[in-house]
Every structure is written in C-alpha cells, then in structure tokens.
Simulated scan of single mutants.
Amino acid sequence: MTGRWLVIGVLLALATGCGEASSAPERRTPEDPAALPTEVPGAEGLVRSTEPVVVSDDGSGPMLCFGGISFGDPPSCSGAPVTGWDWSAVGDVSEDGGQRWGSYVLTGTFDGTTFAVEEVSQPDPEPDEWDFEILCPTPDGGWQVEDPARSTQDDLGAAMNTASGLPGFASGAVSTPDGEPGPDDPAQTVFSLYVVGDPAAAEAAIREVWGGMLCVTEVERTDDDFEQMQGEVIEAEVPGMSQVGGNLDNQLEIVVFHDDSSIQRWADQVYGEGVVVVESNLQPVG
C-alpha cells in the first residue's frame, strides 16, 4: 500500500464472516529449513535502487547505508563501501564536521560487500501513487453517511480509538468513497476497518460512536499478531532490513536493501507462504 492515508497499524521504520480471534501465526520448524542469510545477498547483473539510499563519507571513503541508520546531521550508518564515487559529480551534497552525505538513486553492481556505481541520479519527487481499494462492495445507491450528527472529526477519532481496542483489531484506514486519500471532511470519509473474528460485532461497536461511512472486513491476522512477528523478525536480524510491519493486505512486510529470494524463502518456511512479503530495494535493470 502506498499513498497518504491515515492508517492505524502499519510499517515500522528501523532508525536505530465469523470466527474466533487468532493467535500469532505459528512458527514452522521444517526438516530442511531455508537458512536466513547472515549478510545482505549479492545481486546478479546491473541493479538500481527503487528507493533513494544514503551515501555517507566520514573521510574513510564513501559508504552506502542500508542498515542501522541513525538519522541526523550528519547521519551514521552501517552498510557497504562504494566504488566509482565522485562527490563533485553527484550534486546535492551536505557537509558537516568533515563528513559528506546525500540521498541518491544508484545504478551499478552489488556483490554483497561492495556497490560499484555506474550511474547516480537525484531522487524524483515522490509521485502520488494510490493503490488502496475499499474491500466492501459499494452499497446500493452509493456510499452514504448514516448519521450526519455523528460524523465529525471527533467522532472519527472516537471510532479509531474504539477500533484499536477491539480484541480482533488488525488495522484501519480512511479514504474517499473512490479509495483516494482521506479527505479533510469526515462526512466524505470511508473508515475501512480490518478485524479477526465477527465483522458484525465490530461494526456494531464502531456504530456506537461513528455515523459516517464504514467498511468492516474480516482478515486472518491481528495487529497483535503482527507485533509479535515483527519482534521475531527484528530479533532474527534480517540483513539489510530498513522497515518491517503489517500492511493493509494483512501481511507482514519486510523491506530490505537486497533479496535474491533467499530471505523470502526463509520467511515462507518460518511463517507459511503469503504471510510475509519481502520487498527488495535493489531491482534488476532491464
């Protein structure tokens, strides 16, 4: 999910129907488990960073930051040496206390220990990308406010607080009826709520405080499930990880600097296929 929705229960950036509520997905112990790499896997051929990466140089040489970034001026981080780097050619360089750094889109090769740069470009302004979908069918006659007197900003806040306290709460988001980013007017807002268990019971609880548009969808994993898995993944020290947390597809999403599918195989064997999705920043060119 990308875009600027107000969302409850989403990714953590690493800077340093009816049913019963689920427990966290059981960790599997396969007879021949896929090993979690101890280092960031190397890439074959030419690759490009799909998201900007920080390159920093404290005087010992340029370093690409993909883990343990401490944001500030200047940043400190761990990562990999960069070859073919020319500070005079990249533009938009910050300097402080003898350290230089900047954020760039890199193209080159990565063998797991060193990034050999072939092309450096400035990040484009982030485009407005909307891929959110309201999962409930559009009601007959279109989306309508049920009770205008209980459709204020305070009422929406009360609905979110109530939702986050439900035993089967997974996540929530607000949008327009067309799935566009949440409007300023709560009366034009659809509150999408994802729960484990009985959607009707969750809807009844929200309706006690919210008279606006509402979509309640049953999913498999709660926010507590994701919190437990998130902690396990952080403890496992997935190499090159920059973000981890639940997404609106009810999956645990792990963002890493590069994955050659070995991290995804590990996650599939530990949690089952489709529970965890690993997103690699580096992607093949062409």
Rank of each mutant, 00 (worst) to 15 (best):
250 N>T: 12
93 V>W: 05
81 P>L: 08
40 V>T: 14
67 G>W: 05
261 S>V: 12
192 S>P: 03
174 V>G: 14
267 A>K: 11
76 S>T: 15
262 S>L: 09
242 S>T: 14
250 N>I: 12
158 A>T: 10
265 R>M: 11
59 G>W: 00
19 G>N: 03
240 G>A: 01
139 P>L: 10
258 H>C: 05
37 P>W: 10
155 D>R: 08
233 V>G: 11
136 C>P: 08
25 P>S: 03
145 V>I: 13
272 G>E: 06
122 Q>P: 03
118 E>T: 13
42 G>E: 03
228 Q>D: 12
35 A>T: 08
129 E>N: 09
148 P>S: 01
186 P>A: 13
253 E>I: 01
52 P>M: 03
22 S>H: 03
86 D>H: 09
5 W>N: 13
209 V>M: 11
114 T>F: 03
54 V>K: 08
171 S>D: 07
167 P>G: 04
64 L>V: 00
209 V>Q: 09
94 S>C: 00
27 R>M: 08
257 F>W: 12
120 V>G: 07
254 I>W: 08
60 S>L: 09
85 W>C: 00
78 S>V: 15
211 G>P: 13
64 L>E: 00
109 T>K: 05
257 F>N: 04
71 F>G: 05
12 L>P: 00
244 V>Y: 08
51 E>N: 04
242 S>D: 01
245 G>W: 10
136 C>M: 02
44 E>H: 10
3 G>R: 10
88 S>Q: 10
58 D>A: 14
158 A>H: 08
21 A>M: 04
253 E>M: 14
208 E>Y: 07
39 E>Q: 15
